[in-house]
Amino acid sequence: MTKKKLSKIGLWAVVLLQIATPSFAGGSVPPPTEPIGNTPIIVPYMKYTARASANLIIDSKGKATITASIDGYKGVTDKVSINAELQQYKNGRWTKVTSFSDSDNSHRIRIYETTDVSRGYKYRVVAKVTAIHNGEKESKTIISSEQKY
């Protein structure tokens, strides 16, 4: 074979490889996954929220530490807010013990609060986090794991 034919075959091979190679540049990005145990699940993509959390720790003296956070995307998220509620499971239902809230004209915020709780009940934190971009709101409700005291 001549050099000219080899060059044409090589050129066509490169073109075919470009066509056959999958690309995510067109917006066809696979959904994010999050493991639960050993099983990955698909989690919804949020436009202005990178991550958010709510946690509760109760020490042996009944001091409950409530933390909640939201991290938006720097340069995208204009404002964030958190409304967190400590709840107690009593008489077959969850009732509000106390609540905390904060907001900031930034892309991230944290709440760190402590309060005393009564012995003999289960507790949890329910936090509603909101991220805003150009007036468009995106909210998510997060529930911490339950803690018994």
Rank of each mutant, 00 (worst) to 15 (best):
Y89H: 10
R108Q: 04
A52M: 01
R119N: 12
G92C: 10
I42Y: 02
K137Y: 14
I42Q: 01
S145K: 15
R51N: 07
A13P: 10
I41Q: 11
P40F: 01
S144W: 15
P32C: 04
K61M: 03
Q18P: 09
Y149P: 14
S106N: 06
Y112Q: 08
T77D: 09
Y45L: 03
S106M: 02
G120K: 13
K61N: 03
T114Y: 02
V117F: 02
W94P: 00
L56C: 07
A68T: 12
S60R: 07
V126D: 13
L86K: 15
D102V: 09
K8I: 00
A54C: 03
E146G: 14
T141F: 11
P22N: 09
I82D: 07
I66P: 10
Q18H: 03
K128N: 15
G10I: 00
P40A: 01
T33K: 02
S139G: 14
N55F: 03
P40E: 01
V129F: 10
T67P: 05
L6S: 00
K8S: 05
S81F: 13
S118Q: 10
V117L: 03
T2S: 02
K122L: 08
T77W: 06
W12M: 00
T65K: 01
D116W: 06
T65D: 01
E85Y: 12
Y121E: 02
